[in-house]
Write a protein that binds this DNA or RNA. Structure first.
Lengths: 197, 197
DNA sequence: CGAAGTAGAGAACGATCGTTCTCTCTCTGT
DNA sequence: ACAGAGAGAGAACGATCGTTCTCTACTTCG
């Protein structure tokens, strides 16, 4: 379909621009030019800017989910799968285009003024937490581990974004190793309780 | 001085409004009305909106630093001081006005378009990390502990903001206990290496 | 009492935003 | 070949932004 190809190009371009400059800083005209679409076609595909924003958030959610899941599936063993989250973050942070989590950013920019955006960001984070909880459950971890790892992942994202360096991923990963070890050590009962580093 | 009283009221009002609605969503006229100052006086005190934004960031930095330091000083013992960070977060998250870290938010909103804001946010986070490193050093912890705790604190802030609930503070605190125990366990050599929970 | 300087209120300005409209041109069907 | 529908380019519109200007009224000093 031609129509959905145009839609896709608009959303992909908006994603790039919104990520690079923030949502409110990118006007419809700039988006129109960058996507190479006429203003008429743009408003033919989307009724308003806010609908484009929501489409971008959906795209980001899929991209995040797919990328994370691919990284996790590639890892073998439940502990490795939990740590794969942080390897995925490390790869992301090293991209030139990385400017922080798009949901945190859009929530910061529009969450107070747009209930849709706030709600979508909340659901995205919730789905991530549930995903981590699933992995932690597979590893036989007690329920408190998953929120701890989720918080580490969130912190790594904002730290890396503001510092402009990817090292937070490795630091979060090391912390995750300790937390996983502490939470699972009991279960893997014969192993000595904790080995630092 | 009358002058600095007006300045203070402008900055305090701007801080509230920017926190509640985002920086770009609050116009100079709204700020003028809320602060009860004439537009002339406003521009007499500050040459531009961006200078108000920077003044707000300075105010936030002081407020954060003072509040955190007070909470930490109140705790006794190096481990308790490290954990006091998360108790301070818990208190903050429970305030109605809490809408996430003002530096993360302003970075997300303006970081890409305003180098001043991006740089100030970076320095603020850097100073927090150094502060944590100082506390961790006092506790005799190895150098990797401080970044881990800083990342936890960052993650708790964004998680609590987006979820709209303060529970992330407690979860981060529990994780911090585990990380501190793991990092210091060796040093407090006679104590069993790790005790979960 | 009267003149002059100051401060407040808000109108005004240029820029830019999201959105719509107009005008022109190009295809297509008969 | 020609009428008509559709698309592209961008002008136009109303709203709002940050910022400046104007006008009025009050205070203060000779």
């Amino acid at each position: 379909m031609d129509i959905s190809e145009v839609r896709h190009r608009i959303v992909a371009t908006a994603d790039e621009l919104y990520n690079a400059k923030g949502i409110q800083s990118v006007g419809m005209d700039e988006l129109r030019t960058a996507a190479g679409v006429s203003l008429k076609k743009l408003y033919q595909e989307f009724p308003s800017k806010s609908s484009i924003v929501m489409a971008v958030l959906e795209r980001r959610h899929e991209s995040w989910t797919d990328g994370l899941d691919a990284a996790v599936r590639q890892a073998s063993g439940p502990r490795a799968k939990l740590l794969a989250i942080f390897d995925y973050l490390a790869g992301w942070f090293c991209q030139d285009s990385f400017r922080g989590c798009g949901f945190i950013n859009s929530f910061a920019e529009l969450g107070a003024v747009s209930p849709e955006v706030a709600e979508y960001a909340r659901k995205h984070k919730e789905s991530f937490q549930e995903y981590v909880a699933g992995l932690a459950g597979d590893a036989g971890a007690p329920p408190y581990l998953a929120p701890q790892l989720s918080i580490l992942a969130e912190g790594a994202q904002t730290t890396a974004a503001i510092a402009g360096s990817p090292e937070a991923a490795g630091q979060a990963r090391q912390a995750a190793e300790v937390l996983i070890q502490a939470a699972l050590g009991r279960v893997a009962s014969t192993v000595p309780a904790a080995v630092v580093q």
